[in-house]
Design a protein around this nucleic acid. Sequence first.
DNA 1: TCGTTATTTAGCCAAACGTCGAATTGTTGT
DNA 2: ACAACAATTCGACGTTTGGCTAAATAACGA
Lengths: 97, 97
Amino acid sequence: MNTAFKALSDPTRRRVLELLKQGPRSAGELADQFDVSKSTMSAHFAILREADLVMSEKQGKSVVYQLKMTVLEDALLGFARAFGWELTPTQTSEDKT
Amino acid sequence: MNTAFKALSDPTRRRVLELLKQGPRSAGELADQFDVSKSTMSAHFAILREADLVMSEKQGKSVVYQLKMTVLEDALLGFARAFGWELTPTQTSEDKT
DNA sequence: TCGTTATTTAGCCAAACGTCGAATTGTTGT
DNA sequence: ACAACAATTCGACGTTTGGCTAAATAACGA
């Protein structure tokens, strides 16, 4: 859970997760949305992977990333509950994993 | 909001906030709960202050810290909403500020 | 005014972070 | 086999972080 919070402490990585919320994206597609080098982005991906917040799958020449919603939820929830909050879903088209 | 996430990325600081959830505490009282020097703790407090997650008030020789619940809530909520979650209070003795 | 207590500031260090360009690995099409 | 493309790995760099000790500041009580 600490790795998750560390991962969330960077705005770039938070935005990556938000993009991934819409659905799976390749490393390149994601990187195109940011103003840093691909290798920098690759490092960010590694941190997100290490925190188990995303899954990666090689598809042809690309690597496709996918958000692990439940892991993100658990991390947030674990903290929120310590402060007397619950995390309830607002009606939205639900995503997988 | 980024300062808030940065502040939350350290486990010591998260635990400080949890302690503060129970009510106001002096710098010394808080520091006693941790295995690091008082000056190190003072640095953590400064980061929490900078992120506006806590208020500090000099009371005699002590400095009393208090959690700014609404600020914490807003930071968390802002992020959670991007993922289709709402932050709802579970029944608990409510705290101030 | 002194000495004690409480906290912060200053100065330092090692480790971690975010970034880059260059080199490397893996996959596809010719 | 080779060239083109996608992504990661590999140093290198400057900055930030978390930790320390020692010194400075602030408030009290005797």
